[in-house]
Structures are given as C-alpha cells and as structure tokens.
Simulated scan of single mutants.
Amino acid sequence: MKNHLLLFICLFISAITMAQELNSVIGVVVNASNDEPLENVNIVNLNQVKGTATNKEGSFQIVAKVNDTLHLSYLGFKSIKVRVTNDWLKFGSSKIELTELALALEEVIVNELKLTGYLEVDIKQVPIVNNNYRYSISGLPSGYEAGKSSTITKIIGSIFNPADFLHRMFGKNPNEMRKLKKMKEDDEIRNLLASRFDREMLMALLQVDRVDLDEIVSQCNYSKGFIQTANDLQILDAISECYEEYKVLNRSRK
C-alpha cells in the first residue's frame, strides 16, 4: 500500500513539474500609436518552434515556458522579440505594442539602351536571361535546380558537394537542423510561412542573417530566380530537402 502511495505521489509531482515547465501564455498585440488591436500578427516561439497569429481582437495564445523568446512580426510594423517571464505565466495576459515603420521608396535607376545600329555591338547591350533547369541524380527523389550558364559546375557540385555550406552553417549547432524538422511538421508554422516573402521569420528561427540564408539556398544549387520569387515556406522546404539529400549522399560516400 505504501509503495502504491509513494508511486502516486511521485507521478503527481512529476505532472505538476511538467505543467510548470511547459505552459502557454496569452496576450494582446496593439498598435503603439493608437492602442488599436492588430489582427493576423505572426507570433513564433523560437525555442519551442510553435507558431500562431492574433485574432480580430489582437489576442493570441501560444505554448511557452519561462525564458522562451517570442518573435512578433506584422507587415508595416517593426518586429520585436519578447521574453516569457514567470510573472507572465503566473498572472495571465500581457499587452504587447508594435511600432509602425516609416515607409520609404528606394531610388530606382533606369538605364536606357544606346543603340548604334550595328548588330554586333547592340546585341552585347541586351541583358542575358538564363533559363532555369532542374537536373535529376540517380538514387535521389528529386534533383537540383540550376542555371544554364553553369550547368557542368552545378551538376558536379550536386554530386560531390551538395550542401557542405549548409552543413558548415549548422554543423556547430545541430539544434538548428532539428528546428527545420519541427518547422516542417508544425502546420501553423507552415501556414504562416506560406504567406510570407520577407524571410524574417526564417532568419529568426534559424538564427542566420539574410545574406547567409540566401547563400544556403544558392549553395544547394537553387537558382537566383527561385530565391527571389519563392515564398518562405518554399525556401524552408528547399533547405530541408537539400539537407536530407546531403545526408543521403554523405552516407553513400562513407
């Protein structure tokens, strides 16, 4: 009888401990200038790799524990990171303010073609448009996208060094690669990424800057056209697919 009671107490304490360690926080996101609630603000827990969005009242609820970091982003507003505290978990809802960004138009320079009338000279002024191709590799479920101008280089790179840059980027911190898997499995994260093209959420989740993120996809032999037009979900899937193919080829080489 004592053994059963002791077991019950242990299970009860474990359940309480787990509930305290992993809970959920609720909050309201508003415009800092007028205190109006903001709908469809993207919110991601960078530690738990969980995502959600605010409703019409600006309210949200997301899985979190103490010291987790929430990343909040909304079009036209400055993105922020918020740390989850004991008080937040204990006392309930918290109001979070987002500040509007000043809109600025970048200068656009238009270069006109100066035609001479000589075909040999004028044709050199016409920009070269590279068609994108995708090459398959035996033993892999899909191939690599590459530009026409460097076909041989791309194919050889795909076989012998398909994602070494990706491996170098995350090799010292394999937790980031585990995040890729979690991101792919979370429907809410995927829905948020599918509607975005700014790479901001991806950069926050993977802890890389925009230059490194573009370089990762480029080194995986995806074309510049794909990188420029793909949404954030397509970029996520491209990186994940590239890493999985890298592991397949790496095992075969060993």
Rank of each mutant, 00 (worst) to 15 (best):
G58P: 13
Q48S: 05
T52A: 03
G76V: 12
G76Y: 02
N42D: 11
V29E: 00
H71A: 07
T52P: 03
I9V: 09
L22Y: 15
Q20F: 14
L11Q: 07
N31Y: 11
D35G: 01
N34P: 09
N55V: 02
L6M: 07
V25H: 04
N34E: 06
K65W: 12
L46H: 01
I62E: 05
V66Q: 14
N34D: 13
N40E: 11
G76H: 06
E36Y: 10
A15N: 14
M18V: 12
A15F: 15
N23R: 13
V41W: 00
I43K: 05
E57C: 09
L7N: 10
G27D: 02
L46E: 03
L11V: 14
G76T: 05
N55W: 10
L6N: 06
H71I: 03
C10V: 13
V41C: 02
N34S: 07
K50N: 01
F12W: 12
A64M: 01
K50S: 04
S73E: 10
S24K: 11
I16C: 08
V41K: 03
G27A: 04
L38Q: 13
K56P: 04
Y74G: 03
V49T: 09
S59T: 11
N23D: 13
D68K: 01
N67M: 01
N45T: 10
G76I: 11
V30G: 00
D35Q: 10
L11S: 05
N47S: 14
L75M: 04
E57K: 15
K65F: 03
G58C: 12
S24D: 01
S24H: 08
A64Q: 02
V30Q: 03
S73I: 03
V29Y: 04
P37Q: 07
S73V: 11
L7D: 08
I62T: 09
N45Y: 09
A64V: 02
F60C: 06
I62Q: 04
T52L: 00
L75I: 12
A32F: 04
N55L: 08
E21A: 15
I16L: 13
V30Y: 06
A53L: 09
E57Y: 13
V66H: 15
L38F: 08
S24N: 06
A53P: 01
V49F: 06
N40C: 03
V30R: 08
V49E: 08
I26G: 03
K50C: 00
L70T: 04
T52K: 02
I13F: 15
I62H: 01
P37R: 03
P37K: 04
V49M: 08
F12S: 12
E57G: 15
D35I: 06
A32Y: 00
S14Q: 03
G76S: 11
D35W: 01
V41S: 08
G76Q: 05
G58S: 11
L70W: 09
S14F: 08
L7G: 06
K56W: 14
P37S: 13
G51Y: 00
L6A: 10
E39R: 13
Q61D: 11
Y74E: 03
